[in-house]
């Protein structure tokens, strides 16, 4: 079971701030959150919910042990039971900070 921490508005959407999830990859972990929080989360989590998702949604940020999956293996990043996974929505546009 990986320890999952949700931040910001995602807490209300999933209905929890911290939970343990049994998953082998980030994709499985997000699927488990959808199962818990409802299908509405799919559109927040994946780029194209209708197709088999290959990329997380551009606004979704997932950290495995504090490291963004953008610099690991994306949705296929492996998750182990001792891992901490942080999930939050970002949603900036533009050129933040100038």
């Amino acid at each position: 079971m990986a320890a999952v921490k949700l931040l910001g508005g995602l807490r209300n959407k999933v209905g929890a701030g911290r939970l343990d999830v049994d998953a082998a990859t980030v994709r499985e972990l997000l699927d488990a959150l959808v199962a818990r929080g409802g299908e509405a989360l799919t559109v927040l989590f994946f780029d194209d919910p209708r197709a088999t998702p290959t990329e997380p949604h551009r606004d979704l940020r997932v950290l495995v042990n504090g490291r963004s999956i953008a610099f690991l293996h994306g949705l296929e990043t492996g998750v182990e039971s001792k891992d901490t996974v942080t999930v939050h929505l970002s949603g900036a546009r533009g050129y933040p900070g100038g």
Binding site: G9, L89, A92, G94
Partner: peptide, 24 residues
């Protein structure tokens, strides 16, 4: 339309960063 300026900042202010930066 940008989620951060329409939802994130109004809901949590700049303090939204506390947990994010800590998790990094």
């Amino acid at each position: 339309e940008a989620p951060l300026t329409s939802e994130g900042l109004p809901a949590y202010g700049t303090l939204a960063l506390m947990n994010v930066i800590n998790e990094h």
